[in-house]
Each structure stands twice: as C-alpha cells, then as structure tokens.
Design a protein around this nucleic acid. Structure first.
Lengths: 212, 212
DNA sequence: TCTTGATTAAAACGAACGTTTGAATTAAGT
DNA sequence: ACTTAATTCAAACGTTCGTTTTAATCAAGA
C-alpha cells in the first residue's frame, strides 16, 4: 500500500528534501539526513539501499504528481474548448499554475522542490539527466502540440524555441526568486499566487504571439 | 603582473572550470583537478590556499569581464541614442550578446562558464550567494534604469518583474540548452549566435512591451 | 659559484563519507 | 507464550576528502 508508507521512510524523504534543497546533493550527508529525521544512520540503506536511490525516490515522489496535474489541467481546458484550440493563456496556466501552487504548500515540497528541480538541471549527475528527461517527456509533448494548435502560424521549430523561452522565463523566475528579491531591494516578492501567475502569463503570451 | 599569470595557476583554473562544470562543486575533488591539470596536488593550496578560494577565483576570472562588456555595450548604445531612450531590443542585445558570444569561445570559458553560473544559482553555498549578488549588482542597476527610460509606462515594480522574466527566459535557454535539444528531438540547437539572439530578443521584447 | 626565495614534489594527517555487519528490539500470527 | 519476520541500533569497515608538512628542485642576483 503506497499510501501507508512507513513513518521512517517518510521522515527520511522529508528531511532529504529539505536538506538537499538547502545544501545540494553531494554536500548533504546521510548522517545529516538521518540526524534531522531522527532515525538511525543505517535506516537509509535499509529502506532505500543507496544514497543515489534515495535521491531518485525523493524526486519521483514529487515529479510524477506535478506533471500529471499539469496534463490533467490541459485536458480540462481542451475539453472546455470543445475541439477549438486552447488559448495561449490557458496553455500557460496549465503549465505554470500547478508549480506556483506548490510554493504555498510546504507539505507538497513547497519552494524546496523547485530548488531541487533547478539543482537537477544544473548538476548533471549521471543518473539524474535520464530521469528527468524521461519524466518530463509526455508533458513536453502535450504542451508542444497544444501550442502548435493554438498558434498555427508558428513552424514546429519556432514553437519549440518559444516554448523553451516561456518555460525558461517562468522556471527561472520561481526557482530563483531570490534574485528578483534582491534586485528589487525587497519590493518584489513571490507571495501572492494569482499576481505572479497573471504577470508571467501576460509576459509569455506576448512573447509567444509576436510575429516571426 | 596579472597578465603573466603563472602557468600552474592557469592550468589549475582551466581544469577546475571544465571539471566543476561537468560534475559540480562538491563532486569535483582537488585530486581530479590537479591530475587533469598535470600539477601536484599541493599546488592548489600553495597558489589558492583553499578549495573554496579556488572556486571564487575561477568564477571571478570570468564574471567581471562579462559584466563589464555588457555595461560597455549599453554605454555605447546610450551614446548612439544621444539622450533619447535606448530601444528595448538594444538593451536586450547588450544584456544577451556578450553571454551568447561566450559559447563560441572555449578559450573564455565557453558553455562551461554558463553551466557554472547556473550551478551558482542552484547550489546555494554559503560563500557563493554574496559573491554573485555583489558582482552582478551594478549590471542589474544599470539595465533596470535603461529599461525604465525605454518603457516609462511601466512602474518600477513592474519593470523589476519583467526584467526578471526576460533574464530568466534568456539564461535558462542558454544555460540549459540541452532541454531544448531533446525536447525538439535535436531539431533546435544553439549553434548560430545571430539566430539565437534574434529569436530570444524578439520574444523578450514583446513580453517587455505588452500592456500592463 | 654560492645563496636566497619561490615553486614543486611525495607523503602523511585527521576527518568525514557511504556502506556493511551482527546483535538487539519490536510487532504480529499462531 | 512462542515463533518468525521486520525493523532499529551501535559499531566498525575501507575509502576518499581537503589540508599540512617536510624535503627536493628550480631560478636568479650577488
């Protein structure tokens, strides 16, 4: 039963998430994790066999539900559109909202999980790259298709580029929001979910729609 | 004389740049670095005192010239504009071109340096955050001012947000270009500098200009 | 040529790491 | 109450890490 996951396993996953997000993969030791989780050192190897497997388990716990939520939201918008293309703003909302709403939910990983995704992209560990490539494949395919339907004047290549730009604008903004905070001397903060969504969707929609 | 830097020091810096970009900070050992640089292990501590100081030296070697080039280019555009606001596209070009041109210049760090910057943002080591915050401060201030002059209808807060979005779109795109490559099944590549610049500037200019 | 300071070299230091072991403890079925 | 499997625990394993030490080597100036 995956819902009645062992308490020790859960404590380890939570502590790992918090510590790795704060210090990075290699800089976080199993001793620090087990101390924070208040479990024995050997519990990690007992429940996850190795440290690498623990990292993978920690990531998979969050990644799969996140992308499922995104795709489900896109499904719903496509259903509501009834055969017609979904508006660019709706596509972006399905892509961004499930992520932004994570921030206000520490129980689902919160900001820590976003930092972890940024770490996965930046630290090209041998076993992480294939993992995220595989885990995001379906999401990427679906949103690319939706964008092409919504903006048929864009070539396939152009659509790839622009979706990449839009994803970059969004992901960098939320994963590294500390940059915005100190650039604006604290005047800009990622607090209100709806405000952030409105701003970033507006920006990206204009970029996606601009003439080639 | 900073131009006649010791050969050993230079070999260490180059090896560090390459290896850290490939493996990350903690995963790169001084033994791997000194082996790749073909120098003695103790040479690192002799020339840089500690590993952390070596990392800082490696980053500073590239960061300062990069931001100076950006600001110099903005200076030139402002001079050419002769008192009038610089066009948004020009501001973006001054911000992006010096970075993109790095990619084709392995002698100046190339793609490796971009990976390192992404690592700095993602791995929040205690001594890196203050470093980049200080090193990018002047650049951030100058480009924010230029943008406000160019788009006076934007409030100060709105300008901060949008510049953050634009920088994110660009930086994520070039630092994590492998994502674009596998999303497009290899059809999109960061090869031609001018093509990339034209696309990303077009995208960001539209996002910056869109009505509030 | 001798001397002085700078650099390189080999070897070792203690500390921290991931992992393994084997016994102690707990939980549950009969 | 006894048995059996699952889990926890303390301790240790061997390895690798950054750093230090001490001696050897080099490069010039007197």
């Amino acid at each position: 039963m995956p819902e009645s996951i062992h308490a020790t396993k859960l404590a380890i996953l939570n502590a790992t998430e918090r510590l790795v997000a704060a210090k990075g993969f290699e800089a976080t030791s199993l001793r620090a994790i087990t101390a924070a989780a208040k479990v024995n050192l050997a519990a990690v190897n007992y429940h996850f066999s190795t440290k690498d497997a623990l990292i993978v388990a920690m990531l998979n716990r969050r990644m799969k539900p996140l992308n499922e939520t995104r795709i489900a939201m896109l499904d719903r918008f496509e259903e509501e559109a009834g055969g017609k293309p979904v508006a660019v703003e709706k596509i972006l909302e399905a892509l961004f909202r499930p992520v932004v709403e994570l921030i206000a939910r520490p129980a689902k990983g919160g900001r820590n999980f976003l930092r972890l995704l940024a770490l996965c992209l930046a630290e090209p560990g041998d076993f992480l790259q294939p993992l995220i490539e595989k885990e995001f494949a379906e999401k990427n395919r679906r949103f690319h298709l939706a964008l092409r339907r919504s903006l048929p004047q864009l070539s396939e290549v152009e659509a790839h580029w622009r979706l990449h730009f839009a994803h970059g604008a969004f992901f960098h903004s939320v994963a590294h929001s500390q940059v915005l905070e100190y650039c604006s001397a604290g005047r800009c903060r990622l607090t209100n979910v709806e405000t952030v969504l409105r701003r970033i969707i507006k920006f990206c929609a204009a970029g996606l729609r601009t003439s080639a």
